[in-house]
Design a protein around this nucleic acid. Structure first.
Lengths: 240, 240
DNA sequence: GCCATGCACTCACATATGTTATATGGGAGA
DNA sequence: TCTCCCATATAACATATGTGAGTGCATGGC
């Protein structure tokens, strides 16, 4: 199907042949739905298939014994939430559905077959995990060197662009179905401080956020506050 | 050669055939030396070869306009400091030599050939970048949810284990050739606070650090302070 | 129509970490 | 041997962010 958001995402970065699209499509063994607040994959598991998110929002997370939690990635349609488990084998983190999620399952056996027979497609899947890594690095620098406000602005800019490449934005508005507590776990902040920071962005006229709908009111200024440069998202079309 | 530290590193995770070792070896076009404090790769570049670190310490980093810097990875012998540039194309960060570095250059054309002809070896190279990603995630949770002291302890534990897998430790001692300022850029702390935290770890009898030599005096307690669990380093031997 | 629940929001206060400044000491070069 | 320089170390103070507690508003179940 044309609407597979992974295909959309990959086609932003390189050309996919019809044959490759067919191979990707047929690698899917089945589609399932996971309810909000349920784990898509558990930490410590040894899965035999990877999960491709078709619809919904998901988060990779680690928890400490004392209950503290850190979200290390937010995933949207078109993201392979645990493609790495194909080679890493043991999940070093859990993956949580933040909303109801529609998920395509891709058996590791099918992935192995792709790596054996389709070098170019393999490189694109590899690329996919490399972009995850680039995002991790960007988050690291944002956590380490940006103020809480700047970090929040940066996060909003990133999510907007990522959703846009898979056609899930509506003008300057997108769905942000996270609670402030979840946002805190994402940015490494307390819930109270998340709230403070949001008030500030609103007061400055940079964003509106009501219900699930977040609207960017002033992209230029938001980008500046968050010192956001999207190079790391690799949105260029290149032969890979 | 047997001493290629990348081979050592990969063999910790899966079996490498003699043929694969030969292919890896012959993918190297030449070896060069980079002086301490020089860039191995510049941000924004579009390199046509990747750099495999044979000896020395290197760091991936991003800088902001105002001079603030965040180090997103520390690399040691056996690490491919920019294998991802093969597919990402544009460097979204720089790579700095922290000490004099001996580096093997692997042309992207050679990597492309490997992906065309050696699926299993390709998976192992992919795995290599996935481990980088796993380390990024671990750093994210450490930055977001650990105190400065715990974060430092965690970092020391990780570096020790990574050096150990490539045979660069001496008992409980290893070379840590970073200044406190560089450590600060790594952990997202100020230099002053790095110093405070180090005093604390010393006072607690957890580490000794004189010159470049860092000795772990009490592994168990250091591990506990840093809430360190090495799952994410994927040190298990598995078929991949 | 009531209650329980979860979430956004606020306040007062606590503290980890940043900032600026200065002192000390060792190594590299003249 | 004498500087100069850089890194470590410490102190006094500033501030961003965390903590604990509580309010009020929706929403959904019964």
């Amino acid at each position: 199907m044309n609407t597979n958001p992974l295909v959309l995402k990959l086609e932003q970065r390189d050309r996919l042949s019809d044959d490759e699209k067919r191979v990707l499509e047929s690698a899917i063994s089945r589609v399932r739905v996971v309810e909000a607040d349920e784990d898509i994959v558990h930490e410590g598991e040894h899965p035999s298939e990877s999960n491709l998110l078709l619809d919904g929002f998901a988060a990779r997370y680690k928890i400490f014994s004392n209950g503290r939690r850190q979200i290390t990635a937010i995933h949207v349609a078109g993201d392979f939430v645990d493609l790495h488990s194909f080679l890493l084998r043991t999940m070093d983190h859990g993956v949580l559905a933040l909303t109801p999620c529609r998920i395509a399952l891709v058996p590791h056996a099918a992935l192995e077959k792709i790596t054996d027979e389709h070098p170019h497609l393999t490189r694109l899947l590899w690329l996919n995990t490399l972009i995850d890594g680039a995002i991790h690095r960007e988050w690291l620098t944002a956590m380490g060197r940006l103020s809480a406000t700047a970090h929040m602005a940066h996060f909003i800019c990133e999510l907007f662009l990522r959703l846009k490449t898979v056609g899930r934005t509506d003008g300057d508005t997108f769905q942000l179905p996270l609670t402030q507590a979840e946002l805190g776990d994402t940015l490494g902040l307390s819930t109270v401080h998340v709230n403070r920071v949001l008030q500030e962005l609103r007061k400055e006229g940079l964003i509106r956020w009501q219900g699930d709908a977040l609207t960017i009111l002033d992209w230029e200024r938001l980008k500046n506050v968050g010192e956001f440069t999207p190079t790391y998202l690799n949105l260029q079309h290149e032969h890979r």
